[in-house]
Design a protein around this nucleic acid. Structure first.
Lengths: 232, 232
DNA sequence: TGTATTTCGAATGTATACATATTGTGTATA
DNA sequence: TATACACAATATGTATACATTCGAAATACA
């Protein structure tokens, strides 16, 4: 039983971290061998992942990780503000005290991982943080949408928590602060504030994702290339 | 293969029509015997139904049809206008000509069934009609929300297409007309109009659902009861 | 009589052998 | 050389036997 739930969560994490690339096929035999379970429970796991939107299953053609083509991403950027802010509002209205405690505890772990530069952990804990806000909204219909958006969001923001410059570190610090402010707004039951903070948080994340999708162009000046060549 | 997809769609229909009541358990052995497939593919079907929100599966406790308790219904009425109108807007913006044709054809079948008093068919075709509008929106994130809402909507509006008075028949006719208007708005790519029509359609449906949830109280006058007693 | 424990039955979960479908490769033919 | 067909290899789909778990009835004990 432990092996099975371990397999499920591990596959989820590997998909979220793009350790298994979008669009890549998932062979039942090799996966079942790897996780030391037979094909029957593994197939069940694949179907659950399909239900959650992690993978897509085609008749007689097996499962493949949900793709992230350009048309999907366009819709993602279009839809995220609506879903995120609605969820934030409902969370501020409906959260229980216990849920706030859980959220705070996740935030502590997240901040530690993000500051320490544990990229994978930070991304996963960030995912968890936002999913918990989704739980607080107490709205199963919108929660599903949020969960599916978060899958793509986490995959897209894979570089977010890997600081490569001073500006990156500042951005991470800002992100942590925004989380704290969001917790405060939800805790204080202030829907309007929660929406506002969520939209700011989205702006920050969106800018970074755009950089990931459309990175800085390679340098055009031949001089620096020459210098490098000499160095080799 | 045919048996399996037949089983899947039949279970869906039975859940939507409340032929299998919300909250009731689904025994794997008896179901697999009934549909003449073995337990392995049946379990797969149950997991797919769980992924779509038709049933809920608990570890070692099997599957049961998703419940519709009061807390869920409150959220349903709260969320439906947002999701429905957003989907309608996107459908008007993004629909393809082919999709409009499919929608028109479904509407013909629906109108026929509704006018003929084929309650179950009308409810199912109504479900299909709104799901097709969801497809037109080309937004996988919101489509999931819509699909889950439609499951509960169809179950709640079970009495909608069973006319028991002149007023009921008028309501059904109005509902058919509203569908036609929605098709026209989507076909003409008029998002604002599509939203407006959708909200009117929702109002009509909501009023009827409220009657289903909170039916007219039983008559209090003893006189009429006496008359009935004499009749027996 | 009430409560705790055991045991047994019925359901769900897993492994494996077998059936079927897809895909790529090789060969024949125009 | 290109195309079509056949066949083999590999993957997915299904059936069934067996393992495990849950819950309820029965029994033991206070």
């Amino acid at each position: 039983m432990n092996k099975k739930s371990n397999c499920l969560s591990d596959l989820r994490e590997r998909i979220l971290s793009q350790d298994i690339a979008p669009g890549s096929g998932m062979d039942e035999v090799s996966l079942s061998a790897h996780y030391e379970i037979s094909r029957t429970p593994l197939r069940e796991i694949l179907h659950r992942l399909a239900g959650d939107g992690y993978v897509e299953i085609e008749e007689n053609r097996g499962a493949r990780v949900s793709s992230m083509d350009l048309s999907v991403m366009r819709v993602f950027f279009q839809t995220a503000p609506l879903v995120y802010s609605t969820i934030a509002r409902l969370a501020a209205e409906n959260r229980t005290g216990q849920q706030v405690d859980v959220l705070k505890s996740t935030q502590v772990s997240f901040a530690a991982a993000a500051r320490a530069g544990d990229t994978a952990d930070a991304a996963l804990l960030n995912h968890q943080f936002h999913e918990q806000i989704g739980q607080m909204a107490q709205n199963p219909y919108l929660l599903i949408s949020l969960k599916r958006m978060l899958i793509d969001h986490t995959r897209l923001s894979q570089t977010f928590f890997r600081p490569q410059s001073e500006a990156d570190s500042a951005r991470i610090a800002k992100s942590i602060d925004q989380h704290d402010a969001m917790i405060a707004a939800i805790d204080a039951r202030e829907p309007a504030l929660a929406i506002d903070l969520t939209l700011r948080h989205w702006d920050l994340s969106r800018d970074q994702m755009e950089k990931y999708v459309r990175p800085d162009p390679l340098p055009l000046d031949v001089i620096s290339m020459k210098d490098r060549r000499n160095a080799i």
